[in-house]
Design a protein around this nucleic acid. Sequence first.
DNA 1: TAACACTATGTAATAATATAACATTTATAA
DNA 2: TTATAAATGTTATATTATTACATAGTGTTA
Lengths: 135, 135
Amino acid sequence: MGISKIDKMHSLSKNQQIIFDLIDKSPEPLKAYTILFNVQKKGIKAPLQVYRALDKLVEIGKIHKIESRNAFIACHNSSCQVAKATAFSICEICEKVTEISSAGLSKYLANFKDKDGMKYNKYNLEFFGLCKKCR
Amino acid sequence: MGISKIDKMHSLSKNQQIIFDLIDKSPEPLKAYTILFNVQKKGIKAPLQVYRALDKLVEIGKIHKIESRNAFIACHNSSCQVAKATAFSICEICEKVTEISSAGLSKYLANFKDKDGMKYNKYNLEFFGLCKKCR
DNA sequence: TAACACTATGTAATAATATAACATTTATAA
DNA sequence: TTATAAATGTTATATTATTACATAGTGTTA
């Protein structure tokens, strides 16, 4: 059997796996130093170790950064097909963040042209409002 | 004559005016500590003085924060009517940032409903790509 | 296997971004 | 005028992120 090329592309190193697991289990976006605190018992001691893993995980689309919050969330959107085209809703009271997967929205944005006729295949959209509970 | 209510709403304090002028003149988004460095000759000495003015200017829509860059740009969109609904294009090479004012885009996003039927009147969208010069 | 390139790790130091806390002053409105 | 809100000044500190350098593991291929 062995490991296929696709599997290898997504196989994570030790630190990457530890940090991904933590983010994936979390019901809310995690900040880098919160992550650091939580993985110190697993031997990850320095900020840079966290940031390096985060960079890689973002790069391969396993997690996304919520830019307005400096926090990271696991991708729950069709196995990370849209790592470069992300949309989230953010509750301004409880800070709950949900990844939006809407074919209509992603199609609209992928086809959007600016005044110069320029298209962009990469974007990040953050909606703000109140979630069900906080409304 | 005196100052009308609308004028007053948009009148800036000394520090706010100094910092807005600097951002407004700048051809590129400015970071908080770049601003601090540039206004020290005008008597603004501490980070907090800059951040407080920035907070206020963002609040009233005179400037916007480019979240992915931690930088601030003056609003050039219909006299700041859309302070809470912003869209930008960002060149990944030269870092040129342009505010997008597209009636179609803002209409689409303002009317977008998520899976729960929830609408959001506030959002921030950042498109990434290459500008004309860098293409 | 040996050599190479590439990726990941470990560690210390420091840079860059942002806020807390408290005292004071200025502007606005009742 | 008086009270209220907004803005300022200042010091210290918290939070977020990167530079620099040394070492170790992994996959490829000659």
